[in-house]
Amino acid sequence: MPNATEFLLRAQNADGGWGYRVGGTSYVEPTAAVLLVLSDPNARARGRDFLLALQRADGGWGIAALDPESGWMTAWAIRALADFPETRDAVARGAQWLLAIEGQRVTDPDARRIIRELHKIDSARGGWPWQRGDASWVHPTALALCALVAAGAHDPSTPLHSAQDARVREGAQYLFDRACPDGGWNIGNPWMLDKKIPATIQDTAIALLALRAAQVTRGEARVAKAIEYLRDAVARAQTPAELAWGIWALREWGLEIGDSLARLNALQRADGSWDGNPFITAIAMASQK
């Protein structure tokens, strides 16, 4: 997609990062997503340096330079930097931060029972939060799995490796627990009282990408059901973000995508972007691979 590449090159900020819009604040998430798809060596080096400069003393990343605490975008930074051999130490420190973080577990039996009645979930299961002190949610958990698998592949010889494996397995169990009854995932509440909360394409896609990275197979019933949901939802999707995330996940699982890619590409703007947004453009490019 040369046109999209040119858009991303134009959209890079002077500090080396990318924002959610051209000229907007550089954030860790869009910068990391762009680094996954961009091959220009100069732009990649500047993006890498932007991320390295934002790594905090505790090993994690905030959302941007203005953020005083590490949070969920640490996973994005690790995933992107894992593709750079020279960032081994930064990736290892980031992985250590991620391993030390988990969402609040509810261990009190009464509270656990009440939450099970409300949401039909096991609140004692450990995933990852958006930020320290929060409960676990599907999106940050899925991103953490992708990051830890990438960090492990980056350096399988480190002592971190076995700890990563254990947390990845635990994170996968968390995702299974939060699966929606009709297939797929939403933010992490499959039920509200007696009402089913529907899945969304983006949450389902990121969860399936994570489970694929964690080497879960289609033999797992909740994966099979999620794929079924996603194929159907992507066939009806209208927005660039939904199409891009959905196609990326389906292709990662080696599945047919019908005319979805053509529909996504029909939404590309004259400037080469999707929605004028470097992040969505990067995801759209990832879906083309």
């Binding site: 998430e29 953020d67 929060d134 509440n189």
Partner: peptide
């Protein structure tokens, strides 16, 4: 949401 996540549960806490 990029700071407090979705569904902005940090604030509920």
């Amino acid at each position: 949401g990029i700071k407090y996540g979705w569904p902005k549960n940090t604030l509920h806490f």
